[in-house]
Write a protein that binds this DNA or RNA. Sequence first.
DNA 1: TATTGACTAAAATGGTTTTTTAGTCAATAT
DNA 2: ATATTGACTAAAAAACCATTTTAGTCAATA
Lengths: 197, 197
Amino acid sequence: MSDIEAKEVKNIIVESATLFFSKYGFYKTTMDEIAQHIHKAKGGIYYYFKSKEELFNEVLKQELSNVKAELRQVTGRNIDPLTALKEYMLLRLELLNNSLNYHETLKADFFDKYKFVKDVRNDFHLFERNQITFILEKGMREGYLNVTNVNSTVDVIMMIANSIEIPLFLQNRYKEYENTINELISLITNSLSSNKK
Amino acid sequence: MSDIEAKEVKNIIVESATLFFSKYGFYKTTMDEIAQHIHKAKGGIYYYFKSKEELFNEVLKQELSNVKAELRQVTGRNIDPLTALKEYMLLRLELLNNSLNYHETLKADFFDKYKFVKDVRNDFHLFERNQITFILEKGMREGYLNVTNVNSTVDVIMMIANSIEIPLFLQNRYKEYENTINELISLITNSLSSNKK
DNA sequence: TATTGACTAAAATGGTTTTTTAGTCAATAT
DNA sequence: ATATTGACTAAAAAACCATTTTAGTCAATA
């Protein structure tokens, strides 16, 4: 079979897997139901993926890949850095709030049992670090921002962004915190802003 | 027996309970070992506390009461509000990092199973809200701070403070994040600072 | 009022069997 | 060769049952 068709099948598997992993999570999803849903034998999945973990990893990778693509659009636009940072943070939270497989990797039991998602998570963290660094450095060049140490500031923003994920996504406080998130972002941008105006 | 002696026994029970709860946590601690440790019959504990949960609640209450007492000293001192806020946040984290029973209430399984610690937690949150509000309002009066809405700002600070607890205390990232915490506090104070100097 | 210790009911634990499920592989089809 | 199948295995999960532990009670007692 041709490469294109092979890629098709692989994609179909991932699509089906995404469906089930998103709905039932990693544990409650069986390889059999993923296979049955696409009218294939379970063994076939193992022709494309060497394990359930690797399949989940691929699903997670694609999920975050979509998030990255959307976030890149914010960084790409030519707007002032404070607005960019604000929009980046808001969009980031909204997108991740809908990333159900990413949520699974935040859960405590998943966290220490499964190291196999580490690479995808690290990749995403690195991506975000780069995006935020890019925004801040642009802001510095153009005089909108006044930051003594960009790296340290990025560290702080990353720490905050990552820390609020658990209350927001796992404890279902997204609605409750909605207003405060806006204030949080204002506090951050206010702190970084030079008084150039 | 006199009130004083009764209070003594109650305190002894709480002391013993603190010992075991701190070491083994709520689940792994038995009422029997608490009783045996003070050479009393288990039934006796139920003369002073109506349940294991109530006893744990009392232990938690005292633990947080100590934290509150130490934090009040920061707020009480007559220093400039930015320094106060900084010291408050740092001390808060250090004290809570050592509050093992408080940590237990942060754990996911505890979180949704046990509502009985809700009051103590709410009380502590209210206390902190008051302390931070006090610092900010003092700062406003004296012209050190420039905050459009004190309540919203307190919301943000509370959200950040509470959010970082899980990575810090449950995921053991205290050391890893130590430098970043200082930067975080600088970011906050920098944002709130008027340019009075 | 305070304390005891035997008591109960419910939950936790341990061990065993059964079922489910991830992963393999030889056979087969394309 | 490249895919796909479905029966197979080993291991994990679930279900089951017996036993033990433990939270909580209470009548007796100091």
